[in-house]
Simulated assay, not measured.
Amino acid sequence: MSFLPATANDLPSSLTSANPGSSSPALASLSAGIVPGLVLVAMITSVAYSARNVSGFALFSPMILAVVAGMIYSNVLGTPAHAKAGIAFSQRRLLRFAIVLLGFQLTLGQVAAIGVGGVGIIAATLGATFVFTVTLGRLIGVDRKLAQLIAAGTSICGASAIVATNIVTDARDEDVTYAVAAITLFGTIAMLGYPLLAPVLGLDQHAFGLWAGASIHEVAQVIGAGFQDGAQAGETATVAKLTRVAMLAPMVIALGLMARRGNADSSAAKPPMPWFVVAFVAVVALNSLVTMPAAVHSAIALATQIMLTMGLAAMGLQADISQIRSRGLRPLALAFSAFVFIAAFSLTLVKFA
Rank of each mutant, 00 (worst) to 15 (best):
S74T: 06
V54M: 06
Y73R: 04
N75G: 08
L77N: 12
G70C: 05
R52Y: 14
L59Y: 14
S50H: 11
A83M: 04
T79I: 13
G86H: 04
I72A: 09
L65D: 00
V67H: 03
L59T: 12
V54R: 05
S61I: 01
F57D: 08
L59M: 08
V76K: 09
L77E: 13
Y49T: 11
A81F: 05
V68F: 07
Y73N: 06
G78I: 08
V54W: 12
A83E: 12
V76M: 12
P80C: 09
A81H: 02
S50T: 13
I64D: 00
A85L: 15
A81D: 11
V54G: 05
Y49W: 11
R52A: 07
P62L: 09
P62M: 04
I64P: 00
A69D: 00
Y49F: 15
H82L: 10
F60Y: 08
A83G: 14
N75W: 04
V68I: 04
A81T: 08
S61P: 12
Y73I: 09
I87N: 00
P62E: 03
I72M: 11
L65K: 00
A85F: 15
F60T: 02
V47T: 08
P62Q: 03
H82R: 06
N75K: 04
A85D: 14
Y49M: 14
S55M: 13
P62S: 04
V67Y: 02
I87L: 05
L59E: 14
I72T: 08
V47N: 07
V67R: 01
A48P: 06
S55A: 13
G86F: 02
I64F: 05
S61K: 01
V47Y: 11
A58R: 09
M71N: 01
M63R: 08
A48M: 06
V67D: 06
A48Q: 06
V68M: 01
S55Y: 15
H82A: 15
A85M: 15
Y73K: 10
T79G: 12
L77A: 09
S55V: 15
I64V: 02
S74V: 02
A48N: 12
P80A: 12
I87M: 03
A66K: 00
A85K: 06
G70P: 05
S74Q: 04
P80L: 06
A48D: 12
P80I: 10
V67G: 00
Y49K: 05
V68T: 05
V54Q: 09
Y73H: 04
A58S: 14
A48S: 10
L59K: 04
G56N: 05
V67T: 05
I64K: 01
L65M: 03
G70I: 03
K84N: 11
A51C: 07
L77C: 07
G70D: 02
L59H: 07
A66G: 06
M63I: 11
V76I: 15
A85E: 14
A69T: 04
L77Y: 13
A81S: 11
